[in-house]
Design a binder for these strands. Structure first.
Lengths: 209, 209
DNA sequence: CCACAGCCTGACCAACCGGTCAAGAAAATT
DNA sequence: AATTTTCTTGACCGGTTGGTCAGGCTGTGG
C-alpha cells in the first residue's frame, strides 16, 4: 500500500536540521524580505553550508513557502481562544491576549506574513480565499450573535476584526519603531501595559465594558 | 554668493522625469521591498532606460531614500489636523479621517514605510529618533491635557497613538488581504464605512463619545 | 564485515544585479 | 549661430545570486 515515491524517513538529523534552517530562514526573510534574503545568509545563520540547504529545501521558494505556512498555523491556533466564550469580554479579551503574546514571541513570523500580504500574497493567496475567509465569516457570525444578544454595541464585525489584527500585529511588525520611541526594548511590564491598553480601548470601543 | 557646487537647475524635463521615476520606484519598492526591487524593473515601469535612472538618482539607495522621505513628509502633514482642535472628538476624529485618506491614496507609500521599519529602519533611523519622537511627545502632551480636562478617559497616550497608526495603516499595508476577504476592491461606500467604524470604535474606546 | 540509503559539501555555472562610461542628441544660453 | 549645459543610451563590467553536481562521508541493518 505504501508505495508512494519513497517518503523520506523522518530521521532525527533531518528533523533537527530542518528546524535549524527554518528558524534562520524566518529571521532572514523577516529582516530582508524574500528578494533581499540570500540562501548564503540563511546558511551562515543556520551554521550549515549553502549546498546543504538545497538538500533539504530544493529552492528558495520552497523554503519561503514552508516558513509562511508555519506562521499561518500559529495564527489559526490563536483563534481558538475566541471560541467557546460566553461573551465579547472573555472572547475578544482572550483573543487580544493570545495575539499580543504571539507578537511578542514570534515577531519575525508576523513580519514574514506582513511581507507576504504586501506582495499581494503570491504564495498563500489560496489560503486567504479559503481558510482565512472561512475563519472570518465564522467569527463575523459569532460577533453578530453577541450583538444580537445585546452584549456589545452594533459595530461592523469585519472592521472590528481588522482592528484586532492591526493593533496586535503592530507590536510585532513595527516593534522597531516602538522600541525607538520607547528608547529601548519593552519590558515585561511594558508588554503588560500594552496588552491592557489594547484590551481596554477595544472592549470599551465596542461597548462591552 | 551662490557658488555652491552647482545646484542643478530645476528644468521641466528633470522635474517630470524625477516624478516618473519616483512613482515607479514607490510601486516597485512597495511590491518587492528594497532587496527585491531592481533598477531595471523600475526603469521599465517608468518607461526609461536604466542608465537614465542612474543619471537622476546615482544609486538605488539614493532613490529609495527619496521615496521614504517623501512618504515621511505626507505622514507629518496629516498630523496638522490633530492640532488646534478643541477636544479629542474633533482632533482625533480628523486625524483618523486624514490617515484613512492617505491609506487610500498612497497605499504604496505606506507599504514602503512599513518595509523600512521592519528592516530596522536603516535609512530613516535618525528621523525616528528626532522628528518622530518630537512629534510623538508633543501629541502625548496634547492627549494628556485632554485627559486632565476630562474630555476623554485616562488611556495611555502612547498606546493610543500606536492604535491610531496601526488601524489606519492596516487598510493600506494589508489592503490585499482586506480586498480578498471583501471579494473585490473597496468602493467609496466601503471606505466611508471603514472610516466611520474606526472613528466610532476608537472615540468610544477612549471615552470621548 | 559489507551494502546501501541518507547526508554532506567544495567547486562550479549561467543569469542577473547595480553601477559605469563614452559618445552623442537635445535644450538652453549667449 | 555658436557654445555650453543638460539629457539620453547601448554596451559593458565586476560581483553576487540561486541552483547544480559529483564524489565523499556516516550510520544502520544484515
Amino acid at each position: 500500500m505504501t508505495d508512494a515515491p519513497r517518503p523520506p524517513r523522518r530521521t532525527e538529523i533531518r528533523q533537527q536540521n530542518e528546524m535549524l534552517i527554518l528558524q534562520a530562514a524566518e529571521k532572514v526573510f523577516a529582516e530582508a524580505g524574500f528578494g533581499g534574503a540570500t540562501m548564503q545568509l540563511i546558511a551562515d545563520m543556520a551554521g550549515l553550508p549553502k549546498a546543504n540547504l538545497h538538500y533539504y529545501f530544493p529552492t528558495k521558494e520552497d523554503l519561503y513557502r514552508r516558513v509562511v505556512y508555519d506562521i499561518f498555523e500559529i495564527w489559526l491556533h490563536a483563534a481558538d481562544s475566541m471560541d467557546q466564550a460566553p461573551g465579547p469580554i472573555e472572547g475578544i479579551g482572550a483573543y487580544i491576549q493570545a495575539k499580543m503574546e504571539i507578537s511578542r514571541r514570534h515577531p519575525n513570523g508576523s513580519k514574514v506574513w506582513a511581507f507576504e500580504v504586501m506582495h499581494r500574497a503570491p504564495v498563500i493567496q489560496d489560503y486567504l480565499e479559503t481558510t482565512l475567509r472561512a475563519w472570518t465569516t465564522g467569527r463575523v457570525r459569532l460577533i453578530e450573535r453577541w450583538i444580537a444578544e445585546g452584549k456589545m454595541a452594533p459595530v461592523d464585525p469585519e472592521h472590528l476584526l481588522y482592528m484586532l489584527w492591526a493593533t496586535t500585529q503592530h507590536y510585532a511588525d513595527f516593534g522597531h519603531q516602538i522600541e525607538t520611541l520607547n528608547a529601548g526594548p519593552l519590558s515585561d511590564a511594558d508588554w503588560q501595559k500594552a496588552t491592557n491598553s489594547v484590551k481596554t480601548m477595544i472592549l470599551r470601543g465596542i461597548g462591552a465594558l
